[in-house]
Simulated assay, not measured.
Amino acid sequence: MRRCAALLLIIGAAGVCAALQIQCYQCEDVRQDECSSPEFIVNCTVNVQDMCQKEVLVLEDGIHYRKSCASSGACLIASSGYQQFCTGKLNSVCISCCNTPLCNGPRHKRRALSCAHTHTHTHLSLLTLIPLLCWR
């Protein structure tokens, strides 16, 4: 029975990971990627906005950025809908979606996996172990 209690505690801790808010950069129509500083960081709505979105527009006066929190469904639909307009040339519009904290900021070297990447796999693996270890 102790094994069951320990597993339930681990699963509870993994569940906390899913309830955390993702943070994203948020700004409207900013040039030169200026909105990747701390004052533009926002907490996204828990269980609604689970992704960060970044729009890059190439206009006559330069590159403009829009960054925000987004729901995965809305972001993925928008990014696929604008894929044909993502040319890098004048009037280009590129929309990208990501699901790790502050991932819509400037590009950095690859980091270790975040909670957002590991939670689903950890949670499902532990759930499949409970019947094997607890109810024998």
Rank of each mutant, 00 (worst) to 15 (best):
Gly81Tyr: 09
Thr45Trp: 08
Pro131Lys: 08
Leu127His: 03
Asn104Val: 04
Ala112Glu: 03
Met51Gly: 03
Glu28Pro: 00
Thr100Gln: 12
Leu129Lys: 02
Val46Tyr: 04
Ile11His: 03
Val16Ser: 06
Ser71Ile: 08
Thr122Lys: 01
Asp61Arg: 13
Gln26Glu: 10
Phe40Asp: 14
Ala74Met: 09
Arg136Pro: 05
Leu59Ala: 11
Gln53Leu: 14
Asp29Gln: 07
Gly15Met: 10
His123Trp: 12
Phe85Ser: 08
Ala14Phe: 00
Gln23Tyr: 05
Ile95Thr: 10
Arg31Ile: 00
Gly105Asn: 06
Ser68Ala: 11
Val58Arg: 11
Lys89Phe: 12
Arg66Pro: 00
Val42Arg: 02
Cys44Thr: 02
Gln21Met: 01
Gln26Ile: 00
Pro106Gly: 15
Val58Tyr: 04
His123Arg: 08
Val46Trp: 02
Glu55Asn: 05
Ala70Arg: 06
Leu20Ile: 03
Ile77Phe: 05
Cys52His: 05
Ala13Leu: 12
Thr118Leu: 13
Leu76Arg: 04
Lys109Pro: 01
Val46Asp: 09
Leu132Pro: 01
Gly81Lys: 09
Ser125Thr: 12
Ala78Arg: 11
Arg107Asn: 13
Arg3Val: 15
Ala6Val: 15
Leu57Phe: 15
Tyr82Pro: 00
Pro131Glu: 14
Val58Pro: 00
Ala6Tyr: 14
Leu132Glu: 09
Leu124Ala: 12
Ser37His: 08
His123Met: 13
Ser79Trp: 04
Asp33Val: 15
Cys75Ala: 11
Arg66Lys: 11
Pro106Ile: 15
Leu57Trp: 13
Met1Ile: 09
Cys134Asn: 05
Pro101Thr: 10
His119Val: 12
Pro101Phe: 01
Arg3Phe: 10
Lys67Ser: 08
Arg31Gln: 11
Arg66Thr: 10
Asp33Tyr: 14
Cys4Met: 05
Gln83Met: 07
Ile63Gln: 08
Lys67Glu: 04
Lys67Trp: 03
His121Ile: 11
Leu102Thr: 01
Val58Phe: 06
Ile11Leu: 13
Leu126Ile: 14
Cys69Lys: 07
Gly105Met: 07
Ala19Asp: 15
Gly73Arg: 14
Leu133Thr: 13
Asp61Thr: 10
Gly105Cys: 07
Ser114Asp: 13
Gly105Gln: 08
Tyr82Phe: 06
Cys75Asn: 10
Lys67Leu: 06
Cys17Ala: 05
Gln84Trp: 07
Arg107Gln: 14
Ile22Met: 09
Gln53Met: 12
Asn47Gly: 12
Ser114Phe: 02
Leu129Pro: 02
Cys134Arg: 01
Phe40Lys: 13
Ile11Phe: 05
Lys89Trp: 04
Glu28Lys: 11
Gln49Arg: 03
Leu20Ala: 10
Thr100Asn: 10
Ile10Cys: 11
Ile10Val: 12
Pro106Gln: 15
His108Phe: 10
Pro106Phe: 15
Ser36Val: 12
Ser96Trp: 02
Val93Trp: 01
Leu9Asp: 06
Cys97Gly: 06
Ala18Gly: 07
Gln49Thr: 07
Gln49Lys: 05
Ile22His: 02
Val56Asp: 04
His123Cys: 07
Ala5Trp: 04
Arg111Ala: 10
His119Pro: 01
Arg2Pro: 01
Lys67Phe: 03
Cys27Arg: 05
Ser92Trp: 00
Ala6Arg: 15
Ala6Pro: 01
